[in-house]
């Protein structure tokens, strides 16, 4: 039951597992907000006391000032778990950063495509989904037809189109 250090590793391993066992593998994400238990509060208070009694190290001015932690601070975690009951494989990743949620759900979406047996999307995550499903030759014809119209589109449209224009 490994916890991966990075979400990228978790995604790669999960994607391999899904490719091998797409029918039985499931992904559970858990968002948990928990208040600390009484014993945990005690432990934190003890630790704070211990830290306060220690002499302050003045030889290293660059070290950040000690952050005092609220003893009753709640714990919030977001855990991703890929589990395959047939083989017993379990892959996990845990974070407490809100900034990661969007990217992680994006990963879930890409893994969802494996589940649905859809072809993989391109690696470029910034590309909008609609752009991928659009027929390509048609788009190219549009660009060729008139530079003015495509310019307008590029100004109003997404970055994905601009990229294509640059390639051409």
């Amino acid at each position: 039951m490994p916890y991966f250090p990075t979400s990228q590793e978790w995604y790669e391993q999960s994607s391999l597992l899904l490719k091998a066992r797409p029918a039985s593998t499931r992904i559970t994400s858990k968002y948990s907000v928990s208040k600390p238990a009484a014993s945990k509060i005690k432990k934190r208070q003890k630790y704070e006391e211990k830290k306060a009694s220690r002499p302050v190290n003045t030889t290293r001015p660059s070290s950040p000032p000690p952050q005092s932690q609220d003893a009753e601070e709640i714990t919030v975690t977001f855990t991703l778990k890929t589990y395959d009951p047939a083989s017993g494989t379990c892959l996990q990743y845990e974070t407490n950063k809100g900034a990661e949620v969007g990217r992680l759900i994006g990963n879930l979406g890409r893994l969802g495509r494996h589940m649905a047996a859809l072809p993989e999307t391109t690696e470029d995550l910034s590309m909008p989904a609609e752009g991928v499903s659009m027929p390509r030759p048609d788009e190219n014809a549009h660009v060729k037809m008139g530079t003015t119209s495509s310019d307008n589109k590029a100004a109003a449209g997404t970055g994905g189109k601009k990229k294509k224009k640059g390639k051409k």
Binding site: Y31, F78, K97, G98, V101, I105, L108, G109, A116, S133
Partner: peptide
């Protein structure tokens, strides 16, 4: 699937507001 996950991400981002900023 793609449309659903776009909305799903928004819903989760809004819902999981207690995570560290």
């Amino acid at each position: 699937l793609d449309g659903f996950y776009a909305r799903y991400a928004e819903a989760c981002k809004a819902g999981m507001s207690r995570l560290k900023k």
